[in-house]
Design a protein around this nucleic acid. Structure first.
Lengths: 135, 135
DNA sequence: GCAAAGGTTTACGTTAACGTAAACGTAAGG
DNA sequence: CCTTACGTTTACGTTAACGTAAACCTTTGC
């Protein structure tokens, strides 16, 4: 069911293959399809996922780790191919890209400050521990 | 209603002061209180927010930008004071801090890769634009 | 032939994070 | 005294992102 030629990439995946690999339920994967984020082929009734489908799923999950909604993740994925010919649409695409970049930069700043505060918190906690153990 | 001595920090804020400053509704602020993230004093019935309350609110909103739930933000805020004497609790606090750090590092990696992909997407989009304008 | 393993659709349930609205209190200004 | 601005409580409504369960195929191993 998962023909793997010696050491490279599987040609296709079942839904439970992907659910196991990424630690999510099959319900979740079908839900993403319902929302238009995935569109696997069918062999009869069953879904069969290509390596590209798997990549899309990875992108969705990365988006989740960054706090993106599924709509945001879909937009980001759609940014990957500028097949949307129209000049005006391409301009708006560039705008969208710039916006995401700004958001990511804000997140970077947020992470930096939070990291620093965690360092301080750890230090204070260790100090508190030392006081509670020695005397 | 907001005594400010020349150039420093206001001593207190009303709920609409804060809602205006941060671009959120008063409903949201009260909701956070309901969830135990804020505990402003009262003057009669009205809420009166201290500078510390305002900082807590800022931390909550930063958490939101990073995709944290309110429960997660509360935990993070609670990490700031190791008054929780018990040694065992302090150990678990250190664990929590370490976990958050790991999560933030994952987010950093995610942002880095996404940034790179946005660069590529922009480049392809500009190329597509050039093709659609010149000929 | 049949049970077990994996897949499917359909549909109702749940949780977080607020939105929205009603009904009311209170202090200041004209 | 009356309006206006700002605040309050209470409560039902909404959206996203799934969970859960029922009822049903279909292929495979014994």
């Amino acid at each position: 069911m998962k023909p793997e030629s010696s050491h490279s990439e599987p040609a296709s995946y079942s839904i439970s293959d992907l659910s196991r690999e990424f630690g999510i339920t099959t319900r979740t994967i079908r839900f993403y399809e319902d929302k238009g984020l995935l569109a696997p082929e069918r062999r009869g009734q069953a879904r069969i996922y290509s390596p590209e489908d798997r990549v899309r799923l990875k992108l969705i999950l990365r988006g989740k780790r960054l706090g993106f909604s599924l709509d945001e993740s879909r937009e980001i994925i759609e940014m990957y191919d500028p097949a949307h010919g129209n000049v005006e649409q391409l301009q708006r695409l560039l705008q969208g890209i710039e916006q995401k970049r700004a958001q990511l930069q804000q997140q970077l700043r947020d992470i930096q400050s939070l990291m620093g505060e965690l360092d301080d918190a750890e230090e204070r906690t260790r100090a508190s521990l030392a006081k509670n153990i020695s005397p």
